[in-house]
Design a protein around this nucleic acid. Sequence first.
DNA 1: GTCTATAATCCGATAGAC
DNA 2: GTCTATCGGATTATAGAC
Lengths: 166, 166
Amino acid sequence: MRAIATEVGVQVGALYNYTPDKQSLLFDLLQSHMSELMDAFVDNPAASPTARLHHFVQFHIAFHTVRRDAVVISSMELRNLEPQNFACIEALRRAYEDRLEAILRDGVATGAFDLPDTKISTLAIIAMLTGVNTWFRDDGRLSLEEVTARYRDMVSRSAGVSERAG
Amino acid sequence: MRAIATEVGVQVGALYNYTPDKQSLLFDLLQSHMSELMDAFVDNPAASPTARLHHFVQFHIAFHTVRRDAVVISSMELRNLEPQNFACIEALRRAYEDRLEAILRDGVATGAFDLPDTKISTLAIIAMLTGVNTWFRDDGRLSLEEVTARYRDMVSRSAGVSERAG
DNA sequence: GTCTATAATCCGATAGAC
DNA sequence: GTCTATCGGATTATAGAC
């Protein structure tokens, strides 16, 4: 709280005009982050599964790299949430995972993807993509577009995207 | 320190007979964890790149799932290390990544793998595999062997393992 | 709505008896 | 080597003046 107050430029007591306590502030932060994530991702069920998967890859990397601070906080402070608040954030996280799994399932159904287990693939893909955040730097060897292209290829391969299907 | 003392069954002051301060204790913990990781992984450069990659997948998942607590601490407390200690642990982490990248490079050289960027693939594979730790439960839907098999397939695909090559 | 001041608590670390 | 006791500092949160 003292660090936040210093950053904002007020005294600690003044913060309590905007939040009842630290737990609520943290929860609101994480909830906003997850809600923005859910709202920002717009899937197009009418498009091909491959196109939808590529869009997910591009979206996930872009969303998380421009919100590095929020992502770090969300992962580091998740365990400091009270049980009820923790359960709420976890539910939002699972709902986001379901968005990707829906794409994978549709792809399997149409034969565009070759996956033995969509749930495992969902978790693996998200872990792989989120990992970009831990090492990507704007002044690094590769641009974000190049990195995204590489991950799009790896995800496509791991999903068994058929080479001819769209 | 108070939590550790309670868990061990001694008073707080007694802990300082075993560590000069909390920072040293944390650093020793992380350093031991990383050193064990490096020592436990035994690569066989004479084997085929595909076999070596499969072994890495199996090893990484097995090592991390049986040390869940140490992995959680290592990731959560990493930022609480003083700069010099942080740099030391990061160097160990990079050394471990290099072990995998060596396999990928050899595979590309022999034509067993099809990878445009071994560094990116290294980071992606490790992130994917480490992610297992966040959701795997012994009493879950799949056994650790089944999960490992699925990840081995996904990693092989993302590495572009040629279907005929060994 | 922000400030100063402070309460209540927790933390890492130390001192000294045994 | 462990204990009791405590120091010094940091933390969240509150109270009351302005």
